[in-house]
Simulated scan of single mutants.
Amino acid sequence: MALRAGVAGGVLSTIAVAGSANAATAAEPVTETIEMPTLTAALTSKVALSAEATQQAADAYQYRAEQQSAAEKAVKDAEKAHKAAEKKAEAAAEKKAEERAAAERAARSAGRTDLSGVQTAAASSSSGSSASAPSQDVPAPASGSVASVVGFLQAQVGDAYVMGGTGPNSWDCSGLVQAAFKQVGVDLPRTSQEQSTAGTQVGTSNLQVGDILYWGGQGSAYHTGVYIGDGKYLDAANPSKGVVIQDLSGYPADGAVRVL
């Protein structure tokens, strides 16, 4: 009985120890379960950071999209403004061209009115001018050459003034004078200075139609024109006026030469 009791006691002790060990082993999952909130907080933090990064990326994308949209709008606005400016410039140019054409028509109309009187004076002056022997090897003109010179000049009224211009639609002062006299076979020098010494010097108080007027000194003139009678002269004046008929009283010449 004692032996059995001892054996039974040992068995029970063994069972108790085993139970304790199993109980200890079974308690371990409880310890891990307690630590779960810590792991969950870290994971939550990572998720929050990831969400923030995603939002920042979305904001950056939206910002770039807005910038691109603004840039495209600016380009379109600039194109519209450029087209509007071009249309405005074209309209201004057309208006200026119309104004110039109207001025040319008016000047040519006035020139034709004056030409009838000029041609009458030219016919009488051409016979008297033949008695004046031209100097510096200027060839003698044919009959009626004064009227031809004046007629050519009248036809150029309204043309543009361009420095160095020799026609057919733009002239400087000496280029126009040279071209006019070339119509009747008179070869004049090209510059104002040289033209002021061509032919016979005449006083400005004794002018005849066809006389070459000059401003400045003889041999150092800076401008030339042609006297067309009635106290008027025709010249390629300047870039703002072009080829015009002007009153000699408003801009008296310093001298004149006669080649016809």
Rank of each mutant, 00 (worst) to 15 (best):
residue 140 A to S: 15
residue 175 G to W: 00
residue 166 T to G: 02
residue 157 V to E: 10
residue 126 S to G: 11
residue 127 S to K: 13
residue 98 E to I: 02
residue 114 D to E: 14
residue 172 D to K: 07
residue 131 A to M: 05
residue 110 A to Y: 12
residue 110 A to K: 14
residue 184 V to E: 02
residue 191 T to S: 12
residue 147 A to E: 08
residue 147 A to G: 10
residue 141 P to N: 12
residue 160 A to I: 01
residue 186 V to W: 00
residue 156 Q to G: 04
residue 99 E to V: 06
residue 148 S to T: 15
residue 144 G to I: 05
residue 166 T to W: 06
residue 133 A to K: 08
residue 197 T to L: 05
residue 166 T to H: 03
residue 139 P to R: 09
residue 194 E to S: 12
residue 127 S to P: 11
residue 144 G to C: 02
residue 105 R to F: 12
residue 184 V to H: 03
residue 128 G to K: 14
residue 127 S to T: 15
residue 138 V to C: 08
residue 154 Q to A: 09
residue 183 Q to S: 13
residue 148 S to E: 15
residue 143 S to R: 12
residue 122 A to M: 06
residue 171 W to D: 08
residue 141 P to G: 13
residue 133 A to P: 04
residue 118 V to W: 14
residue 118 V to Y: 12
residue 160 A to S: 14
residue 123 A to E: 13
residue 171 W to C: 09
residue 197 T to N: 04
residue 113 T to P: 08
residue 182 K to C: 07
residue 181 F to V: 06
residue 143 S to V: 13
residue 167 G to I: 01
residue 191 T to D: 00
residue 186 V to P: 02
residue 99 E to F: 06
residue 184 V to R: 05
residue 155 A to T: 13
residue 197 T to V: 13
residue 171 W to M: 07
residue 147 A to I: 09
residue 177 V to M: 02
residue 155 A to V: 05
residue 177 V to C: 08
residue 182 K to I: 07
residue 168 P to G: 08
residue 177 V to R: 03
residue 114 D to H: 15
residue 123 A to N: 14
